[in-house]
């Protein structure tokens, strides 16, 4: 069964590669390729169970895909011109800004994420009657997701006092709801 699963995944990726090689990639072929790839989940879970099956399916994709990537490698020889050495210190601006943003907004972002995650998981807890363990694990999972998104959002946007104070107000307001 494992062999069948690998063959199906190989077929799916081959289809994806074939579609990729044509000048005008057809979305139909791409969709079919992904469908074949997803189909491989079935023999995987038949062979090793649902949990291992999903994990094996996930880790098999990069290993098979790299066979096609290596097969498709191309050589473009050109020597790089030597680079000038500047007696300059590291570009402080970008790094310092990023560090400052993370330092300033990191704990605020954590609190804001926790407020959001607690609100949503509490709603699911009360609304859908979630069990306590499910409620807490959902809370932590959402917290991690929101925190990662807020870190991205904060680092992507220029640091402005309006957005920072909005985040701060939300975090403090939410803390009153949680801890007040």
């Amino acid at each position: 069964m494992i062999f069948i699963a690998i063959i199906i995944q190989l077929a799916g990726l081959a289809l994806l590669y074939r579609s990729w090689c044509t000048p005008n990639r057809k979305s139909g072929t791409n969709a079919a390729a992904w469908l074949v790839l997803i189909t491989a989940l079935w023999p995987w879970q038949q062979a090793v169970g649902l949990e291992y099956g999903i994990a094996f399916w996930c880790v098999a994709i990069p290993l098979i895909a790299w066979v096609f990537v290596v097969n498709n490698r191309e050589f473009r020889n050109r020597t790089t011109p030597p680079r000038i050495r500047k007696h300059a210190w590291p570009e402080k601006k970008q790094t310092v800004h990023a560090v400052l943003k993370i330092l300033i907004t990191g704990p605020v972002a954590l609190l804001a994420s926790f407020v959001c995650a607690s609100f949503l998981s509490a709603a699911a807890y009360r609304g859908a009657g979630l069990a306590e363990a499910n409620h807490l694990v959902l809370n932590l999972s959402l917290l991690l997701l929101f925190w990662a998104v807020i870190i991205y959002w904060v680092t992507a946007k220029p640091l402005r006092w309006q957005s920072t104070s909005a985040l701060l107000t939300f975090a403090i307001g939410g803390s009153f709801w949680l801890y007040g």
């Binding site: 990729w20 990537v69 191309e74």
Partner: peptide
């Protein structure tokens, strides 16, 4: 997704 251009170090 399947491109790997070798030869030029940065690329």
């Amino acid at each position: 997704a399947f491109r790997w251009r070798l030869g030029r170090p940065t690329l």
